[in-house]
Design a protein around this nucleic acid. Structure first.
Lengths: 338, 338
DNA sequence: TCTGGCACTCTGGAGGAGCGAGTGCCAGTC
DNA sequence: GACTGGCACTCGCTCCTCCAGAGTGCCAGA
């Protein structure tokens, strides 16, 4: 186990390195922090920290920089979450309050998060897996062509065209609409399949084909829509990731374009509490030199989706975590209100 | 006016520079192209071209590189549009044919274009200004809460919540729905306002408030939805823009994030035919070192939206133009079919 | 009008020196 | 035993110089 002071030295190294982006030496450390010991002592501590793998030297005769393991320790034990200042909170609220619909909420969130952290922001759309159905509507566009509109409690609306096997009367349509709604409104997506299972049977034989088709489409929509979508923003901030970035920028940009990768990334984050993945902890290679801070957000107690930022491993973890947490809370609040 | 050979020299310079990314000298030029004259002659020609502002020297004793003006001449007079090869065309068709809905079409297009040109692709969603209404639906979610669903002929669906000033009966709702549809279905967005103008008058006094609210929301939706949206892809390709890119990459990324800027950019492009904006011809500063190739696409004769790519000024113009044109055609085709 | 020749310019890379920050180790002190 | 000051050593960085090579402009001649 590392002594109190050694941890303090590690903390100082992380802080300085994050600030300056330059390897930090023993002398500079003692000058900038009140460690109460001489550079020589710090050097000994550093040697120990290096043996343990928390810091490394880019080359002999250079200062030390934290390793992924070092950042990990820093995040877990040495750093708290830095709460945002009151003005910052106010700004968030002002910025978010103008949102008019779901797309707008997500769009604003992503911009806000990018600005606040000066990193790349990733916001997942509220997932529909835990959502409930608010309304199902069926419209006849043509005698044998229907449109299915699904409205969820998170305010998302999905529509699907349906080509019916045969003509479907207005009465049957109204009937189906009514029965469908009485069964599924307020229910969770996952419960819908069994709730509508026996519906075709209660219809006239000639209408059953259409009813079955409609139900199939509905279920399909439910499944497809539980596929996650997300929005990213602040891509221009990757230029801040480090001066050596020309090498690393490409894979990062590529990873950011692959929404599937990002969704997986967010999916791996814990449902509650904040998840920080540092450097090589990220499964995706392109993100091996970045850290991801993610957190769930939701309208109630349950997280309906996740959001986070992607930044350089040498990021200001307390500040970033604070911003991410604060934004998640406000979004949750907004979502709960609407 | 420049002589035939001088134009040939310019063409050779552009081609070589695009290929190698290095300033091209007189000797290398004569070796690689059959100009039939000696380096000395080429030097004289180059001096003239430089005087005219078509090429420039990064520094004395280096080769020449084309200026924006040089590229302009190249594009206008010296280069054609390089048609895609048959396999390429097939690949496009295969890639696009799997598209299931509008979002998918646009998404595929953007990816395709990015891959084909290895540059950043920008695709505008089909504009609704020229669209017509396919159907308007009204649903009662609660006694005084309606949902308006607007379906357009391009397959886009928009919905809006409406809080009514007072309760609105099922009969009145059906009535409004029917009358609204009989008036606007098949009509252009721009015509809708005057078509529904006198609608409130024909309703009972107690319902007029709600009817007015609904109409207001409808018109608002029409206006808002004619605001353009777009999708971009292939951002990772900016790393290809040049080896000096660390300087220029940032403003480009920022410009790409500002969809408003991009929409303006596309908006400035000609409605028919291809538009190429080179370097400083782009109004937006961040894009001063890039070129934009844009073209309109549409389901019929009219262009409903535009698409294009953003690349380095030293891009393969004929190839890029060929790819952009081909993709636009296929998208138009797909749109016409659906 | 084109060509070959020639002197000149300038960049980019190689090689080398000196600086300075930083280290590891060791002997001495509290 | 923990901490400190001192000291020799390492090594990247910057600056300099030098050189080669590519490219130019100009001129006289075909």
């Amino acid at each position: 186990m590392l002594s109190e002071r050694r941890l303090e030295v590690l903390r100082a190294i992380v802080q300085d390195y994050v600030g300056t982006e330059e390897p930090v030496g023993s002398k500079a450390l003692t000058e900038r922090h009140n460690l109460g010991v001489s550079p020589a002592t710090v050097r000994n501590d550093m040697a120990v920290l290096e043996d343990e793998g928390f810091i490394a030297q880019p080359h002999t005769s250079a200062g030390r920089i934290p390793t992924d393991k070092g950042y990990r320790l820093f995040v877990d034990k040495l750093a708290g979450v830095k709460p945002l200042s009151l003005p910052e909170r106010r700004a968030i609220q002002n910025f978010m309050d103008g949102a008019v619909d779901l797309d707008d909420v997500v769009g604003r969130t992503v911009r806000l998060l990018a600005q606040l952290t000066r990193q790349v922001a990733v916001v997942q759309y509220p997932s529909l897996t835990r959502s409930t159905v608010r309304h199902v509507e069926l419209l006849a566009l043509a005698p044998a062509r229907l449109m299915l509109v699904l409205i969820t409690d998170t305010g998302r609306v999905e529509q699907r065209m349906i080509d019916c096997p045969g003509p479907f009367g207005e009465t049957s349509l109204a009937d189906l609409r009514a029965r469908l709604n009485s069964r599924v409104v307020g229910r969770r997506f996952t419960d819908v399949p069994q709730l509508v299972q026996d519906l075709p049977e209660s219809f006239e034989v000639e209408d059953r084909g259409t009813v079955t088709t409609v139900l199939a489409t509905l279920l399909e929509t439910l499944v497809e829509e539980t596929e996650e979508r997300l929005m990213i923003g602040g891509t221009a901030n990757i230029t801040r990731f480090g001066h050596d970035f020309p090498l690393t920028i490409r894979p990062v940009l590529e990873a950011l374009e692959e929404h599937v990768v990002l969704l997986k990334l967010l999916g791996e984050a814990k449902d509650s509490g904040m998840t920080v993945r540092i450097g090589h902890e990220n499964a995706h290679e392109g993100l091996n030199s970045t850290s991801v801070v993610a957190v769930g957000y939701g309208s109630g107690d349950e997280a309906v989706a996740k959001l986070g930022v992607v930044g350089p491993t040498r990021m200001d973890y307390p500040g970033t975590m604070g911003a991410v947490r604060a934004v998640a809370r406000y979004v949750g609040q907004i979502l709960a209100e609407s």
